[in-house]
Structure formats: structure tokens, C-alpha cells
Amino acid sequence: MDLGISGKVALVTGGSAGIGLAAAKSLAREGCDVCVCARDPERLADAVVELQEFGKVVHAVLADVEDPSAARRVAEETRDVLGPVDILVANAGGPPAGRFDEVGLDDWDVAVQRNLLGTVRLIHAVLPEMRSRGWGRIVTITSRSVREAIDGLVLSNATRSAVAGVVRTLAREVGGDGVLVNNVLPGPIETERLRRLMGDEEALRGRGEEVPVGRVGRAEEVGDVVAFLASERASFVNGVSLLVDGGESRVIA
């Protein structure tokens, strides 16, 4: 299936590993020129090497979306090298685990800056040009905690849900301008974060057995969903928060 986005410019934050890198690969495979942004210079360099295998133009920007000045800088550098951003994939690492009485106010500040305001700033940086051109795709990566609170992840439950609220509101405001805004809710995906939370291979396997399909997900499975939502094929999909969790969530709506 041709997704109709060959030649588009995609900006993917948190793009050096895990779901972010998988999304960047899926977009590059569909013919997009891709800019990836991340905090670790070595991993960012490795990601560029992997993405160049798809034969498209790849650029990397070393930046941390926690930094209030980063979003504008990343968007401007992407524009200077590749052209205006057509597709934004706003992805950032999840905040630390912890119950409400285990996290301090400083932890809240970091989580809000990274997982909520970082996303808001990125959208602010790319949305005006998308609207002026009459075409754009914004895909945020959050968590299934948007649909049902996960014990011990109060920071994620709160900040990810706030992003979902922004997505649903913005989709109604800019859909008429040709800009579609959607949110992807990964469940248990085999990433460094999940491995860290699980602690060992046996626990990871046990986690997979809790999922109806009998395993945890792969990052590329989320990446392909992101590419679809960014495509012309998803031209009537707007404002959704889409679970990619192997059927684990029991929430009906």
C-alpha cells in the first residue's frame, strides 16, 4: 500500500532508539526525508546510520525537548536542511515510575516540561506553516495510561492524559486547515524502558503472557501505526487516541 507521503519532511523527537527510531524508520521506508532529535550524541549518530539505509535524506539534531528553547531550534534547523516540517512525531521518554507519595515537586516539574510542554512547544513551532500550506500531520506518542491509570506511574498517568486532551482539542481546531492531529497509546512494547521496569527476562516474558496476543509488542509495530496516521490513507482519521497494546486494555470506549 502506498501511503502517499513520499517526499514529505518528517521530524521525530526521541528518535535515536525505541519507538521514536522505529517511527522514523517507518516514515523513511515510505519515502520521507527525516530529521531525528535526541539527547545522546552517540545513539543519535547510530540512528542516522540506520536510517540512511532507506536512501532518503536524514538529518539529526542534538536537543532535549525539556529545554524551552529546543523546539523552535529543532524546527528551524529541520526547515533549513530538509524543508518545512510536514509530519511531526512528538515522542519523549516516559517519566520515572513512582506512587504519588514517592515523587516530589521537582519530579512533577520535569515530567510536565518533558511530556506535556515539550510536546506543546513542538506543535507551536511547526503548526503555522502546516496550516499555511494546507497539509500537515501531528502524531503524539503517549501511553495506554491515557485510557486507564497504571499503578505506580502517577507522573505518566497525569502528563500523558494532558497531551491527549491537547490532541483532541487541537484536532477540532485545525482539521479544517488540512492538519490532522492524532495520538498513539502504546501498551507493553519491548523497549529499554519496559526492560528497566520489568527487571529481567523472566519478568518480561511474564508481562507478555498477560497480553491477549501472548507477547509484548515490538517497536516497529508502533512505528508502522505512526506512519499510517501520518499518511494520506488516514485522511479521515483525526483526534483519535489509538491503543497499540495487543488488546490488553479493558476499556470499551
Rank of each mutant, 00 (worst) to 15 (best):
T142W: 11
L122S: 00
E202K: 00
G98T: 01
V237L: 14
D107Y: 01
E50W: 01
D200H: 00
L3E: 13
I150D: 03
S241L: 10
L122I: 01
G18R: 01
T119I: 03
S161P: 05
A171C: 06
D106V: 02
V112G: 03
V65A: 07
V34G: 12
P68W: 07
V48I: 08
I150Q: 10
R205D: 00
D64T: 02
T142L: 09
E77I: 12
E232S: 10
D67T: 02
E173Q: 11
N157K: 12
I138T: 02
A149C: 06
V81Q: 15
L82K: 14
M1L: 15
S231K: 08
E53I: 08
V12C: 12
G93M: 05
G175H: 09
R99E: 12
P212G: 04
A149Y: 06
I19R: 06
V81S: 14
A111R: 04
R250N: 04
S235A: 15
G20P: 05
G199T: 01
Q52C: 10
G14N: 03
R193E: 04
A230N: 12
R137V: 06
P128H: 04
V216Q: 04
V89R: 09
L243C: 14
L117S: 00
V251K: 13
Q113Y: 00
P188M: 05
S26I: 09
R168E: 12
F236R: 15
E173R: 09
L62V: 11
S143P: 10
G94M: 14
G20E: 04
S249K: 10
A70N: 02
A60S: 15
G7W: 13
K56T: 15
E129F: 06
R114E: 02
K25V: 02
E102T: 02
V9S: 13
V85E: 11
A22V: 04
E201L: 02
G178E: 13
C35P: 12
I141R: 07
I19M: 06
E248P: 03
E53Q: 15
R29F: 10
D245A: 11
V36D: 03
V120P: 01
I5P: 10
V49L: 09
R215F: 02
G175R: 10
A24V: 01
V61C: 15
R72W: 07
A90Y: 05
V9W: 13
D177M: 09
A45L: 07
L3G: 12
F100G: 14
G247D: 10
A234L: 11
Q52W: 09
S26W: 08
E220L: 02
G83I: 14
R147T: 11
N115R: 03
F54C: 07
R160D: 08
P128Q: 05
N238K: 08
N157D: 14
V49S: 10
R133P: 09
T140H: 02
C35I: 15
R43W: 05
A17R: 01
P68L: 09
A230V: 09
V58I: 15
G178S: 13
P212I: 00
V213M: 15
R29M: 12
V213P: 08
D46M: 03
R193M: 00
V174Q: 02
V65F: 06
R121K: 07
C32T: 13
R79L: 15
D2Y: 14
P212V: 04
